[in-house]
Simulated scan of single mutants.
Amino acid sequence: MKLRKVTAASAAVLALSVAATACGSGDKDDKGSGGSKKISIGIKFDQPGIGQKTPQGYAGFDVDVATYVAKKLGYDAGQIDWKESKSQDRETMLQRGDVDFIAASYSITPERQEKVDFAGPYLLAHQDVLVRADDSSIKAATDLNSKKLCSVTGSTSAQNIKDKLAPKADLQNYPTYSACLTGLQNGAIDALTTDDSILAGYASQSQFKGKFKLAGLKMTNENYGIGVKKGSDLKAKINTALEAMVSDGTWQKTVDKNFGPANYKNDPAPKIGDIKS
């Protein structure tokens, strides 16, 4: 009799243990880390209009695109774990699995495609220059000859202009785009160059509205894609989400919201897989 009581008690403990284990496994997210379902997305934290971390949260075109895509994948905004993806870290972050995908002004190039896969493109940007709103002297790349041209230290944008388009341009390297904008505002420089989407994002900040304009030179094609780990099935799912974003009108509304104050003349939404050289 005593033996049967012990055996019954042991069985009850075992049943409770199995039930607890089964319940716990159901609470784990896709990465098996426990808690509610989450998705990790890489963005820029320091590009106004594109991807920026603010006291109120995260804002910008890439943030809005990524949030829309995440929703189509089954995640609401509260289930997104935003991670800073600096340009030099993006491929490594994807290869290590630090993030599920990256939307961070991430131009699709053959070199990058060897390391990661891309959904999209979802925006066709171009190298351009930002000038003061009252400056009508720069209408072509050759007009940059003898002009003080600013870009951030380490960027290839200004050097590309000097090497190929305006060899007499006076290059000015500043530590940040914000510093370039200050120089442009006070007349220390004549033009700032990088992707037109990035320029539009900076110029759309409240303190700069109406003070600058894009020259509209379109010197290169920059096909922004969403990076995923090589071989990931997320690529096809993200492409489907991007197509929906364009077809339901959300894509254009997002462009207007983030770049409109700079009078950004965007190209039409690119077709999936159509990469402009």
Results as ranks from 00 to 15, higher is better:
Lys164Phe: 08
Gly231Ile: 01
Lys164Leu: 09
Lys229Thr: 14
Ala200Leu: 09
Ile226Tyr: 01
Tyr177Pro: 09
Tyr174His: 11
Thr182Leu: 15
Gln207Asp: 14
Tyr177Phe: 12
Thr220Met: 07
Ala188Gly: 13
Ile189Ala: 03
Leu214Ile: 10
Lys168Asn: 15
Gly187Lys: 07
Gly154Leu: 06
Gln207Ser: 14
Gln172Pro: 02
Leu184Glu: 12
Gly154Ser: 03
Leu165Met: 15
Tyr177Glu: 13
Lys229Leu: 13
Ala215Ile: 05
Ser157Thr: 14
Asp190Ile: 06
Lys164Gly: 15
Ala166Thr: 00
Leu234His: 00
Asp233Cys: 00
Gly231His: 05
Thr194Leu: 10
Gly225Asn: 11
Thr193Tyr: 03
Leu234Asp: 07
Ala191Trp: 02
Asp170Ala: 13
Lys229Ser: 14
Leu199Cys: 03
Ser206Lys: 12
Lys162Phe: 03
Ile198Arg: 04
Ile198Tyr: 01
Gln207His: 10
Ala203Glu: 08
Ala179His: 07
Ile189Asp: 07
Gly187Asp: 07
Leu217Ile: 06
Ala179Val: 12
Lys218Asp: 15
Asn160Gln: 11
Ala158Ser: 13
Asp233Met: 10
Ala191His: 01
Asp196His: 05
Gly187Trp: 02
Gly154Val: 11
Cys180Thr: 05
Gly216Glu: 10
Gly210Cys: 03
Ser155Ile: 06
Ser157His: 12
Asn223Glu: 10
Lys213Val: 04
Asn186Thr: 13
Phe208Asn: 12
Ala200Asp: 01
Lys211Pro: 07
Cys180Tyr: 07
Leu214Met: 02
Ala200Tyr: 00
Thr194Trp: 03
Asn223Cys: 12
Lys168Phe: 01
Ala203Asp: 03
Lys213Trp: 06
